[in-house]
Write a protein that binds this DNA or RNA. Structure first.
Lengths: 97, 97
DNA sequence: AATTCAACTTTGCATTACAAAGTACTTTTA
DNA sequence: TAAAAGTACTTTGTAATGCAAAGTTGAATT
């Protein structure tokens, strides 16, 4: 039993980022407002977590207008999906044994 | 899909505390040195994480001498075991759906 | 022209994580 | 018996993080 937490990704330590990634795992894309309301966080806080995930290139951002209102939606990048899968596997390895 | 991260326990957000709790879930008791080496953290850092878990009354501490050396070992309190179980259930709910 | 809305960015503060150094107690070694 | 070593801390200091609140931007509505 050595180095059992080394494979946990620091990017997914926070509850908010865990929530974002989970939403994006099961939805092709989710918009800012939906994430904000689902996780019940302030918009500034959410923006900073999204920025952190974007910086790591774990998510893609699409800005457009829907019904003449700005709408920003997010989706997982392949790297993000992989990283999150690895993180979940590390979590399982940690607690399932 | 509402408030999906509300049931995650803040006490278990950090990798180190997640590691500590996991070790204690599968071992009746684990001593300081073993935790330190398994998680590869500095002793000061580990001590502070353990203190945080102790403050929440999630773990019990037993100090004794083994082979004439000081030995501090840790075990889960019932509350700690319950809280961690709830946390894991919340995690599963988050990612398994 | 003023207001509203979405999605930020900035600011500022409080908390946290961490390493490194220092401490206390005991045992071992010289 | 004095010095060194080992365990488990505690203290100190710093850098990173989390967060709310307020400010910003650009387009749409009134």
């Amino acid at each position: 039993m050595k180095n059992i937490i080394a494979h946990l990704d620091k990017a997914f330590e926070s509850r908010v980022r865990l929530g974002i990634m989970s939403m994006l795992m099961v939805n092709e894309s989710v918009d800012f407002k939906t994430i904000k309301e689902t996780l019940d966080v302030s918009d500034g806080n959410l923006a900073s977590h999204l920025a952190a995930l974007e910086k790591k290139e774990y998510i893609n951002i699409t800005k457009q207008f829907i019904e003449r209102k700005p709408n920003t939606s997010y989706s997982l990048s392949p790297a993000g999906r992989l990283a999150f899968k690895k993180h979940l596997e590390a979590l399982e390895a940690l607690i399932g044994k």
